[in-house]
Design a protein around this nucleic acid. Structure first.
Lengths: 165, 165
DNA sequence: CAGATCTCAGCTATACTGAAATGC
DNA sequence: CGCATTTCAGTATAGCTGAGATCT
């Protein structure tokens, strides 16, 4: 922050004209053109859609990530799970407690390294994940709604390339 | 959440094989293919880059949004500013207090509707914004690094279309 | 001993809600 | 009166930090 506080109580007009205000959602040109801003807006919308699709099942986005990793990549210690998904050890601890309470995962001490918990999907977790897959697919379709099939593929390709390194 | 808590203390192995663990960052296939997930990852990276570019100037992303709106769209009441940028009235209040303390904006009572504050850029705010523009441009370039010029334009077009409605 | 793992307490940023005070 | 605006207090979540207990 630079500079110094200004005065406060001189009077002036809003907008400088007589027209009523424009309460509409209208982002400024400086933001509308920024790729980072557009990406952020799109991500926000996508996360709302996905969260809304998972909520009826009592699952949050990070719960789904954990279940997906266990199904796709197999059981793991909590530390390794956290590294795979870039979820903090502390947050992961809370997520796993919730999933365990729901019977979707099991945590058991690793008999070969007793510092570790081995986290694995249960049968119920596997079945739940299969049902969630359908919800996730519907959410993707809703998210990509305005784009043609070709545009969807191109967007996916560009995002992959953007994240490549 | 469904089901019931499982047992905890039966022993088992991690990974099922003898190899050392894979501490690498390796998202599961179920996530890697999801447009919403890719968009979220890209947005996260973009926001980090932009935040890092603005931080040396003591400015956060939302500060920049406010300054940008005032410059591009003119002075406004706090309520209208909030609607333009989709920033909550409460958060906007805190942001404006910080910007005012830095001398970048001024808040004065609207003499035609004394409930309102008219928020406007100061000369210092305008000068600061011009310096921030350069930082923002550098951040966009860093964000889009892996893409060709044509790909950058295509990504921007697709994101605009995605957000269209 | 150093270092990894799991757990717990707490912190920051962001987004949102409820309500009071003031004015239209 | 109803309604809008600003302000303040509080809540929820995600992401992160520090530290203790346990184990390699």
């Amino acid at each position: 922050m630079v500079g110094v506080a200004n005065g406060y109580h001189q009077a002036m007009d809003a907008g400088g004209s007589e027209q009523p205000r424009t309460p509409a959602y209208e982002p400024p040109a400086r933001l509308r053109g920024l790729p980072t801003w557009l990406t952020g807006q799109a991500a926000r919308r996508g996360q709302e859609i996905v969260a809304g699709a998972l909520a009826p099942a009592g699952i949050r986005r990070q719960h789904f990530s954990v279940l997906a990793s266990l199904a796709d990549q197999g059981p793991a210690s909590q530390a390794d799970l956290g590294r795979r998904l870039v979820i903090d050890r502390s947050d992961l601890h809370a997520l796993l407690a919730e999933l365990e309470q729901g019977g979707l995962i099991a945590r058991v001490r690793d008999r070969r390294d007793r510092r570790r918990n081995v986290v694995a999907l249960t049968a119920a977790g596997n079945a739940t994940l299969k049902r969630l897959d359908a919800r996730i697919d519907a959410a993707q379709a809703a998210f990509l709604g305005p784009l043609s099939d070709q545009e969807r593929a191109e967007l996916t390709r560009l995002l992959h390339k953007l994240l490549e390194p």
